[in-house]
Amino acid sequence: MEESRKHFVLVHGACHGAWCWYKVKPVLERAGHQVTALDLAASGINSKNHLDVSTLSEYSEPLIKFLESLAEREKVILVGHSLGGMNIAFAAEKFPEKISTAVFLTAFMPDSSHQPSYVIEKYFEKTPMEEFMDSEFTFDEGEKVASSVFLGPKYLSSKLYQLSPMEPQLFGDTPRVVVITSGKGGVGKTAAAAAATNVGLSLARLGFSVVAIDVDIRLCNLDLLLGLEDRVNYTTVEVLNSDCRLDQALVRDKRWSRRRRRLWPRQWRQIEDEELALATMLVRVGPFMGKYLSNVANKFSEEKYGSVGRVYVVCKDDKIISESIQLWMTRNYTVKEVIEIEGADHMPMFSAPQDLCRALIHIARMHA
């Protein structure tokens, strides 16, 4: 168990904070791993102002201090999201011996041949400023890479979080859930049926397949609760005695499925709005360090940064860093493996948390 237990260090992207990993962290921990999610400087609840952060070293200070605090010979899996790819590359240059694998999650991945700003400059060359909608960038005079950025609410909604609904926080395949109520009559039976129905409805709204079974022979409490009391409903005994077909006994399920489909879009939209509301309340103006990345920073070395194994996770429906740009970065600087996540936008920790956790656990098993 100790050999398979890994330590993940999760590094957020621009304007975000450790809070964006709240779905991923508990799943990885339940899988037996240790997880640390950090706020970079001027991010999350870190008290520093973005105006006081002009270098990658200053921006990465919380991450560097954490790596310095690790026990001798302890290694971690660094996961950098979006702009966080720059931070984990900087950390790998500083402490290659402390990092077993660097995971670039739809992230900017610098190489060892160009200035750190190279991949970001290529990105801006291919991305018109109109694409950033109501976001605000600050550029120093003559610089191609911004010094700071604030992500606007329209941009967040249409570009970052467009596929980010709430999903059940379970690892593995979604199971079929069977709810069986008491077979006795009286108040206890009715209460049990009501409780079972409420649980079933809640699970269904989270995307599970739910079968609620009323095993009573004649007191069909679930029919009352689902508004089917005016219909002829066959019982379990009649199916077993071949007095009716199974599809006749299940006709009520078809009626409920149609009703659930009518309710689902409204419920889904409400959950998406909750995720977007969380982001719009918590994002901050973030440092982008244009002048430092373009003119001041030295190249990352092949001897240090280049010695750390790299894995790239591609989010195929990313509207920020497109799939083609992500794959270009893997060709620009080779990696051990490219993992693709279908149906994931720029925020896979929200839009596809289970698939992301599967990918990270696979990386821990194969590359760390």
Rank of each mutant, 00 (worst) to 15 (best):
A194L: 13
I217R: 04
N332Q: 14
R260V: 10
R266W: 07
D134C: 02
V119P: 02
N49W: 12
R258D: 15
A191S: 09
L156D: 01
S4K: 13
T197M: 11
L160A: 04
K336W: 04
K94P: 03
G286P: 01
S54L: 13
S4R: 15
S82N: 08
L246C: 12
D243I: 01
H81K: 05
L282D: 02
Y155P: 03
G85V: 00
E143P: 04
K299W: 03
W256H: 09
D214C: 07
L282I: 06
A297F: 01
V210S: 08
F108Y: 09
R176K: 11
K336T: 04
A249D: 06
N221R: 10
N241E: 05
S135M: 02
F350C: 04
M289V: 06
L56Y: 01
T106E: 07
P265Q: 07
D243L: 11
F208A: 13
V179L: 11
Y118K: 08
E274K: 12
F124T: 02
L201T: 14
G85T: 01
V210P: 03
D253A: 15
E74T: 06
G152M: 00
V76Q: 03
D214H: 07
S294D: 11
M129V: 04
L67E: 06
F90A: 05
D173L: 07
D52T: 15
W21Y: 15
Y155L: 04
V149L: 12
A14C: 09
P110L: 02
S157R: 12
